[in-house]
Amino acid sequence: MKDFEALKNIWHDQVALPKVSHEDVLKKVRKTKQGLAAKLLREMLGMVAATIGLIYVWINNPFKLWTTHLAMIIFIACCLYYIFVLIRDYRKISDNTLLLNKPEEYINYLKKYKHDRYIFNTRKYRIYSLFFSLGFVLYFIEVSFLASLWVTILGITFTVAWLLFSYFILMRNYIRKEEAKLEDMIENLERLHKQFENTDQEE
């Protein structure tokens, strides 16, 4: 039988040492910073290229109907919104000051952050795809005047089928998975939150 003092002696006898040095930490800091910036830059460049492409198509094609102009505005707005979200998320990730909060507050922040991400990944994404669909519908109005009937029907059928498939199959599966993940995380965080709560009952 050992008492707590004996356990303390065992603890102080341990020779287990961290395998990480301060140089390793600094190396990782530099690597992570470059990695994050590079990934962000790649995504940003992709979206900027898409936006420029859309503007180019808009300028170089004398669209006749106002519906097509509206469609182009919707597409470009969607791309700009995505770029805005990328920048906002990057700034959020870079903010480390929250780690200095008390654990109870930090757990609350994690809960809120996870919930917000869930809202973005589901509801806002839904609105995003809705606007994209609207853009396509508006675009096809002009196409129907220019192309043959069969090409128009084929184009509309393919676009509608793809949008329905994305919305009802891909999105639903994705939302279900995200929801399960969020519930699991929230449950975990609630448990941790209770552990750090200051209750007078314990005194």
């Binding site: 287990a16 961290p18 395998k19 990480v20 301060h22 390793d24 930490v25 600094l26 990782k28 800091v29 992570t32 480390n96 000051t97 780690l99 200095l100």
Partner: peptide, 22 residues
């Protein structure tokens, strides 16, 4: 476990470095 402990310690000190001025 030792491996996760090293990872978490490294992550902690990365945050320390980033907040060092504070």
């Amino acid at each position: 476990d030792d491996e996760s402990a090293n990872d978490l310690m490294q992550e902690t000190f990365m945050k320390v470095w980033q907040n060092l001025d504070k």
